[in-house]
């Protein structure tokens, strides 16, 4: 039976309209609805299904982030994860926390907890880095199966269907391995109210990055965060001649 580690991140809810802060050094997070990163939800669901199929013995969820990241861990616990590890990162360092830091933390915890499978979402919907799974696999020297859309366990190996441009690729990797979940892997269950209540009794261990020997001191600085350019308003023209003259004016003809 495999021991499974899932990575979860608390992000601004997918349905919220993102606004840039007036100082252009970040986005507005205060008073904004947050939630578990949707791709991480898919990763959690896959781990829980492995446990239901008796493939996994224990599922541990790890979140690196602000004290509020506990909410995301609770959601994961409500979905069926056994226990959580919260790597607390203060705001000043969280702004420049990089996927490499998270990978190092995940790799260390995976070794400490004797993990066989790490499942993470392919990317977070806030920074869209899509690096954590790949770098974690590299740091551990484990095989990786990214963008998984179907996972089947065959003894000491897993067969993964990967989403690639224009189709699917099927690969087989030996355990231990790192998997990143793509959108079509499964349909995550809803964390019901009774399960959220029960999840409050499940343990969450709080540690710091220093406890696992990872230096997360900032090495870069955010210079500017900007809105994407807005589309310019169009205009309705009375006839074809005006259209042609307008197009000529702009140099399209």
């Amino acid at each position: 039976m495999a021991r499974v580690l899932v990575g979860v991140k608390r992000v601004i809810d997918y349905a919220v309209k993102i606004r840039v802060k007036p100082d252009k050094l970040g986005v507005v997070t205060d008073g904004v609805k947050h939630g578990l990163n949707p791709f991480d939800e898919i990763a959690v669901e896959e781990a829980v299904r492995m446990k239901e199929k008796k493939i996994a013995s224990e599922i541990i969820a790890v979140s690196c982030g602000l004290p509020q990241a506990q909410e995301s861990l609770r959601t994961a616990l409500a979905m069926g994860v056994d226990r959580g590890i919260h790597v607390e990162v203060p705001q000043t360092q969280y702004d420049t926390l990089q996927p490499l830091h998270v990978s190092k933390i995940l790799a260390k915890i995976a070794q400490d907890e004797k993990i066989d499978v790490i499942i993470v979402g392919k990317q977070a919907i806030d920074d869209d880095s899509n690096q954590t799974a790949q770098m974690t696999a590299a740091l551990l020297n484990w095989p990786q199966a990214t963008f998984a859309s179907e996972i089947t366990v065959e003894g000491n190996a897993i067969v993964v269907k990967r989403e690639i441009d224009g189709g699917l690729e099927t690969i087989k990797v030996k355990l231990p391995a790192v998997i990143s979940a793509d959108l079509r892997l499964n349909e995550p269950r809803y964390a019901t109210l009774p399960n959220i209540m029960k999840a409050k009794k499940k343990p969450i261990k709080k540690i710091t990055a220093a406890d696992v020997g990872v230096d997360i001191a900032p090495r870069q600085q955010v210079l500017s965060v900007e809105d994407p350019p807005t589309r310019q308003a169009g205009s309705v023209l009375p006839d074809v001649d005006t259209l042609i003259s307008k197009l000529k004016e702009k140099g399209h003809l």
Partner: peptide, 15 residues
């Protein structure tokens, strides 16, 4: 529940 799931799936797929 199904409505929420579908809405999330569609939003992410489009994005």
């Amino acid at each position: 529940e199904a409505l929420y799931m579908l809405k999330k799936y569609r939003t992410l797929k489009n994005r």
